[in-house]
């Protein structure tokens, strides 16, 4: 079992307490492609942040690859994030003053990998994303799709246990959205990367083999979507 959540609770306390996650139990195997769906405010992003050790939780247990992730110091959680998790964000979150290849290199920088080997690895992943020619370009010189592919390359470079994608197509047009989702699907099928996508778009969620529906801080149902007939991409859906 790669990911194991047991009775995870999370309450935000900004003035008045907001109980966002009300006991989440979830298990995800290695090599799965899972999407987490829910309306805004359902707690799906909070869940993703907890999965990505970007945020802590109040109650319950979270095991990632056998390790209990609870009450970690900033230092430990940084190390776990670096080694086990690759992030793909809606707004790409590339560093503006770094070129594509430098952005991709960054996680390896924090592992202390030498400059030369970092560059080599980053170029290999950019090539895989078809961005060799864009390696020395800055993010503001690239299209949204290109930026997201750079971000995916950056997420992959440390060979993480899981890729966490938070609305990866949220800032992209529908054509590029399809391309990015195809890319993620291919990574899952061909390279066996475990991928968890958070989205509120059914078309995006349909790419996954398993859809976790969240409502009001609880898992409503877990849908087996290996047939991918939940909601076809692009066809009369809510996709832009």
């Amino acid at each position: 079992m790669l990911i194991e959540l047991k009775g995870v609770h999370k309450t935000y306390d900004n003035g008045q307490p907001l109980h966002v996650l009300k006991g989440i139990d979830l298990e995800i195997e290695k090599g799965e492609f899972v999407s987490i769906m829910g309306a805004s405010g359902s707690g799906k992003s909070t869940l993703l942040n907890i999965l990505g050790i970007l945020d802590n939780y109040d109650e319950g247990e979270y095991h990632l690859a056998g390790k209990l992730i609870k009450n970690l110091s900033e230092r430990e959680s940084a190390t776990y994030r670096n080694e086990m998790i690759g992030f793909v964000f809606q707004s790409f979150n590339l560093i503006g003053f770094k070129t594509a290849v430098e952005n991709v290199e960054l996680p390896l920088f924090y592992q202390g990998v030498s400059r030369h080997r970092r560059q080599e690895a980053a170029m290999a992943y950019l090539e895989k994303m078809g961005l060799t020619d864009w390696a020395s370009h800055y993010p503001n010189e690239m299209s949204g799709g290109q930026k997201q592919r750079v971000a995916i390359a950056r997420a992959l470079i440390t060979h993480p246990e899981i890729i966490l994608a938070d609305e990866p197509t949220g800032a992209l047009d529908s054509k590029t959205s399809v391309e990015v989702m195809d890319l993620l699907t291919r990574l899952n099928r061909e390279d066996g990367v475990t991928i968890i996508v958070v989205t509120h778009e059914s078309g995006v969620a349909n790419c996954a083999d398993k859809i976790v529906h969240i409502k009001d801080g609880l898992i409503e149902k877990i849908e087996d979507n290996r047939q991918h007939h939940s909601s076809v991409f692009g066809a009369d859906t809510i996709m832009k």
Binding site: E74, R75, A78, E83, N93, I95, P107, Y110, T158
Partner: peptide, 15 residues
């Protein structure tokens, strides 16, 4: 924001 990105990618507070 940049530091947030760096932290998500594994930068420790010391870094």
């Amino acid at each position: 924001h940049e530091f947030g990105i760096r932290k998500a990618l594994g930068a420790r507070p010391g870094n």
